[in-house]
Design a binder for these strands. Structure first.
Lengths: 196, 196
DNA sequence: GAGGTTCCATACGCGACCGTATGGTCCGAC
DNA sequence: GTCGGACCATACGGTCGCGTATGGAACCTC
């Protein structure tokens, strides 16, 4: 009379995904083995088979998140040849990433955690470098491209924060939000040199 | 042979300040009674005399922080009559608030906490409303003033986030940082109507 | 300097979570 | 079908933090 009949067996990736989901809900503190096991309808026995300990899970989840949040986004954007179009697509793409945003905001509280800090740093640097590169392709010289990238990334990050903490100050509809972002991109492109 | 000789007796404010300090270091999870007691070189006995429980401490600390981070800053800025000067002073003032920033970033992870969410919401709304008011004083009509305020506040928030996570992408010196902010304010004021 | 109030120390029970140990179950290979 | 490795369940000991209870120290007042 056992009636186990578990769903399927779990992989390390299942645990990492569950960890990311928990991270978005309750921050790093919510990435706890026993609660996750309950949520996955299994036990710690499974977890400690796949991972050495909790820190290993955190690292795996963060790497997974970093990959999905940067490399893949950039690779997707890069299919477009025109830099201006890329900038618009980038900001449009990046507005809709609900879970990624929640995770990122959660991680800010743990910026000094040895596994978290480097990931946030890499992501920040890659974002600014990539956007600066796009402004470079548009025709700005390096320093100016970097400054504009900084403002562009900042406005994106700040927008994300406001969306999470004080959504009432943001435009109500997606269309208006995109229009605001679009006009911001226009402003950042103002005075562009090159063949226009 | 007791030799207690404690420093001085503590007040509720001492505990609230310690809580804010811990909040900046390790997020909401670090606001824990026993560690704080150790840090203050006292015991839980003191804490539970001044506060009903941990949540009460959190609320007290948040109110203290909200007061210092908004009301006082705005009151200070308002001593200047010229709106453009106010905008510049505001952004300049707001760049240096190290501890406040760390606390705010830490709190983003706990935006769904019943005591945290409302505070973040109020702060966000007040900031945008106040900056929008300044743009209104400069001469923009309400909707445009709100849009520009949104971008201004976003760029400030994003800048703060980058400073904490990827400082290497920001200008290295204070002077350069201020110059960047200054040119951003200029850009946000571009096209201003009124007597110029 | 006695007595009451304010403030703090200590001890306790409780729950949550970590990590380990150990035995059990599933599953493909042969 | 059975055997071995991959995978999971369960039980345990340990740590940390919460909140309570209760006695004691410090201070103030008269």
């Amino acid at each position: 009379m056992v009636m186990t009949q578990r769903g399927t067996r779990l992989s390390a990736e299942d645990w990492a995904d569950a960890a990311l989901e928990a991270l978005g809900r309750g921050g790093l503190a919510a990435v706890a083995v026993e609660p996750l096991a309950t949520r996955l309808d299994t036990t710690k026995g499974s977890f400690y088979w796949h991972f050495r300990n909790r820190d290993a899970l955190i690292e795996a989840a963060l790497l997974r998140w970093e990959e999905r949040g940067t490399t893949q986004v950039i690779a997707d954007i890069e299919t477009d040849p025109d830099p201006v179009a890329k900038l618009r697509r980038l900001f449009a793409t990046v507005i809709g990433h609900g879970l990624t945003h929640r995770i990122e905001l959660s991680l800010l509280a743990s910026a000094d955690h040895p596994a978290v800090g480097p990931v946030l740093r890499r992501i920040g640097e890659r974002r600014v470098a990539y956007v600066a590169q796009l402004f470079g392709e548009v025709g700005f010289e390096a320093a100016e491209a970097h400054r504009r990238a900084l403002i562009g990334v900042s406005v994106y990050l700040g927008n994300t924060q406001l969306a999470s903490t004080a959504p009432s100050v943001l435009p109500a509809t997606d269309a208006e939000r995109l229009a605001l972002i679009s006009s911001t991109v226009d402003a950042l492109l103002a005075g562009a040199p090159g063949p226009f």
